[in-house]
Computed example of a mutant assay.
Amino acid sequence: GSRPNADTSTPGQPTLITPFTGVAYLDNRGYTRARVILSWNAPNNTDGSTVFDGDRYEIRYAVDTDMLYPSTWAQLSAARWQDLQTWSQPFAAPTGKWSTMVVNWDTTTAQLQDLSPGVGYDVQIRAVDKTGNIGAWSSTTTFVASSDNLPPSTPAAPTVAGSRIAVQVTHTLGKSSGGTFNLESDLDHLEIHVSYEPTFTPTAATLVGKTAANASMIQAQIPVVFTAQIEETSARYVRVVAVDKTGNKSGPSDAASATALLIDDAHISDLTVSKVTAGTITAAWVMAGEIKTADTG
């Protein structure tokens, strides 16, 4: 019989369906990343015929450089170092720097993962049939990955030691659910709140200070030690709040209490009148002196 004609039909351009759906998530290292689900309509061939020999879809995506990006390091903290390109332009042009993925012909959705939260991306898609005929890339669609809206886990209660002039707070960067040094890696600092009530709600009025707490301290298992200069002798309660690099705050930890006692004699190296707060002078602690009727005469 006659020789069959070669397959010369070429798939047309798939149409991406917007808006895309996305969400922020924590990766296995404890950093906040973003994922987005793409969807599209299957194309016909360029001649208008139905595609019966479709093989796969190819997707490519890259950082969008036409957007206005944050200008401070704190605002850029959600992006990984490998996502940045140069000092003068942190996000370089996407030409030649596309990330690609392939999905089967029988699906019309795909999930892009490990995206930088709050960063814009360009995405394109094309169709390929079983003969190897490759359709043209679709027009560029731009989307913004979900911002980091995940607060850190509630931290465990701190360990508190009190004195007459200060309260020392120690925290091993563990979660309230248990463990030590297991808070999320995008942690930035801890807020220290002090009040007289054990069930108080942390506010700006109860905040006595902030102390650095980050991934380096978690990995090296270095506890946080913070000293608040509080001159009181009654019982006080301390709660800590974890804050990540984006500014998301955790719920407050359980309260830890400490009663500030008077300073013992053993901790006073130079006794002056201002340090004597009660009692009378006795020979038991006066080690030297002189008896005289006057300074002169």
Rank of each mutant, 00 (worst) to 15 (best):
G1D: 14
S9G: 06
S9T: 08
T10R: 07
P11T: 00
P14W: 01
P14G: 04
I17P: 02
I17W: 14
G22E: 01
V23M: 14
A24C: 02
L26G: 04
R29Y: 08
R33K: 13
A34C: 07
R35K: 12
G48E: 11
S49K: 09
T50H: 01
R56V: 00
E58G: 01
E58C: 07
E58H: 15
E58V: 14
V63F: 12
D64Q: 11
D64A: 07
M67L: 06
W81V: 12
D83M: 10
D83W: 13
T86C: 03
T86D: 15
T86W: 13
P90N: 12
P94I: 00
G96I: 00
T100W: 05
W105M: 05
W105K: 13
W105L: 15
T108S: 10
A110M: 08
A110E: 00
D114N: 09
L115D: 08
P117F: 04
G118F: 04
Y121I: 01
V123P: 01
V123W: 01
K130V: 12
N133D: 04
I134R: 03
G135W: 01
S138H: 00
T141E: 09
S147A: 14
P151D: 01
S153G: 10
A156V: 01
A156H: 03
A161G: 03
A161K: 04
G162K: 07
I165S: 12
A166N: 11
T172R: 06
G174I: 05
S177L: 09
F181T: 09
F181D: 07
N182V: 13
N182L: 11
L183V: 12
S185R: 03
D188Q: 13
L190I: 06
E197D: 15
F200N: 02
P202C: 04
A204V: 08
G209P: 04
K210T: 10
A212E: 06
A213M: 08
A213I: 09
N214V: 05
A215I: 03
A215S: 15
A215V: 09
M217C: 02
I218D: 05
I218N: 05
Q219N: 14
I222Y: 01
P223E: 06
V225D: 02
T227D: 03
T227H: 01
Q229G: 11
I230F: 09
T233R: 14
T233F: 10
R236N: 06
R239P: 04
V243A: 06
T246M: 05
G247W: 04
D254C: 00
S257V: 09
L261H: 05
L262W: 07
D264F: 04
D270Q: 15
A278F: 11
G279V: 02
T282E: 06
T282K: 10
T282C: 02
M287L: 12
T293G: 15
T293P: 05
A294I: 02
T296Y: 14
